[in-house]
């Protein structure tokens, strides 16, 4: 099967300064792909490059066999790519329903009511809060709002930048469960994670980045079983 997203020899960064160097990465349809690595390895930069928020120095990014490197952010949402930033990822003074609605503006879904229904089935917590300003919600609920907003445009590929950052352990589990549930609906997911152990356990395949370069890649299970990876990137302790 041809990959949904193919990053080939990508060098990118900010203001002419490369952060990632010659990165290769493949995402097949309906996969969950996780990118892990130490702080400053350039994990988020990979996501941001797909989303045209960095300056790309060389290499190619192909989405559904179409070159998208350098295409404006605004045009990517209608193509079926949706991103969820790590921080400041909601519109605090808009209500939850309005937040969800914003997701439909750039890429109107075929049946808005149906999509909203399925999003609210995924995130039942939000049902009671639809008319509340999103800024009044807890951290975990905010994460659901921003995921919900992204899903409202019926994306093919979802880019998640550390979706569990700063969440309590209880919510952490739920967010990982939700990511699996989102994949069940046929959406491909490329995510960056700090909670590497849990992330690898739900990943089909994962990439380890070090110093802005590819270090290793394998299935999630194999990486979890790999002693060297465990020692260097998973805090060394035995799998729980």
């Amino acid at each position: 099967m041809s990959p949904l997203l193919a990053i080939d020899g990508l060098t990118a960064g900010y203001g002419g300064l490369p952060i990632i160097d010659n990165i290769n990465l493949l995402v097949a349809p309906k996969e969950i792909i996780v990118v892990i690595g130490p702080n400053g390895a350039g994990k988020s930069t990979v996501l941001k490059s797909v989303f045209a928020l960095t300056s790309i120095l060389s290499g190619s990014i192909r989405f559904a066999n179409q070159e998208i490197a350098g295409i404006a952010t605004q045009k990517l949402v209608p193509m079926g790519i949706c991103a969820v930033p790590q921080t400041r990822n909601i519109f605090p003074s808009l209500t939850v329903r309005e937040n969800l609605d914003i997701g439909t503006y750039a890429a109107p879904p075929r049946n808005r009511a149906e999509v909203e229904e399925s999003v609210l089935t995924l995130f039942p917590d939000l049902k009671a809060k639809l008319n509340q300003p999103a800024g009044e919600l807890s951290g975990g609920q905010r994460q659901m709002v921003t995921l919900g907003r992204a899903l409202m445009s019926e994306p093919k590929l979802l880019l998640l930048d550390e979706p569990t950052a700063g969440l309590s352990p209880a919510y952490l589990e739920r967010i990982f469960d939700l990511i699996l549930a989102i994949r069940q609906t046929g959406i491909t997911i490329l995510m960056v994670e700090q909670n590497a152990r849990q992330a690898l356990s739900i990943a089909d395949r994962a990439y380890v980045l070090v110093n802005g370069r590819n270090f290793a890649s394998d299935t999630g299970a194999n990486l979890l079983a790999n002693d060297e990876i465990r020692r260097s990137f998973l805090g060394g302790s035995r799998p729980s």
Partner: peptide, 9 residues
């Protein structure tokens, strides 16, 4: 920033 990411014109 988020509005841009969400694809608003």
């Amino acid at each position: 920033e988020l509005a841009r990411v969400a694809g608003l014109d």
